[in-house]
Amino acid sequence: MLETKNLTKAFKKKTVVSEVNIYLEKGESVGLLGPNGAGKSTTISMISTLLPPTSGEVWFNGQNALKESQGLRKVMGVVPQEIALYEELSAYENMKFFGKVYGLRGKELESRITHVLDLIGLTDRKKDAVNTYSGGMKRRINIGVTLLHEPEILIMDEPTVGIDPQSRNYILDMIKTLNKEKGITVLYTSHYMEEVEKLCDRVYIMDHGEIIASGTNEELKSILSNEETIQIDVHTLSMGFQDNLLHHSSIRKVTEEGLGYRVIAPKGEDLLSEVFELAKQTHTKITGVSIQTPSLEDVFLHLTGRKLRD
């Protein structure tokens, strides 16, 4: 339905998006996961026909969307990373304005506004100016305005960034409903792996402007199928212990995680007794050990040697 071909963007001499190939099938929910500065927003801007790529193409239903943008623009809803609204105006006024810009009028417009306000849970605040809203409410109306013209494809750029868990869950559930019940195709950008894991059928992992892995959650995690993640909680962090772990022949990676360490090692090795031995040597008190199923976070760590967020 929507597909990019070697999409590349360079600002001055610096390439920030390089040869990106992603596709979306109708009704799919696809995640674009990557750390800050990976080039997610830049990719999204190009797909949504707002930023001309340095090279590469965007195809929509067999049409070159960069040459014939109206077809895509009509059925697409883009939720930008920023609150792209008139903050002096109320939620209702914003919706009315953008609705009319999309050519909606009269009863139809009113009923859609009512419906969307209900969906985003802002009916009782609809008359207040947006700049009096909380962060979470602003995020919701930012999405709401995009839903008015009932887009077939919803492109969202970190729509939950910087808000409380409750609002976040609300938004995630809402998107899930739109995708599963209304069949809206979703491209969801985030640097929270939990969100993408929960919401998306397929995931692209992006780093330094390139797609470094893609597939379903399971496919991605199977990259780690021969490995396991061990979380070792300690009483106090110890450099000596960390060094010991790092130099152990079968341990792949060690990162600090809370008050403890996260270790990736091949499956099936009897590592635990050795870990306790290493702790003893450095007088480190272990307070807990758990073996975890890998997450996309671990996949990213595996692929790049870095954490998704610092």
């Binding site: 801007s45 949504s48 026909t49 707002l50 109206q70 623009r73 009509k74 697409m76 883009v78 930008p80 990373q81 920023e82 609150i83 792209a84 609204l85 008139y86 953008f98 810009v101 999309y102 305005v145 013209h149």
Partner: peptide
């Protein structure tokens, strides 16, 4: 700056 302009362009303005 706030991407409202982008929103307007996508809407076909």
């Amino acid at each position: 700056k706030q991407h409202v302009f982008g929103r307007l362009m996508i809407s076909g303005t």
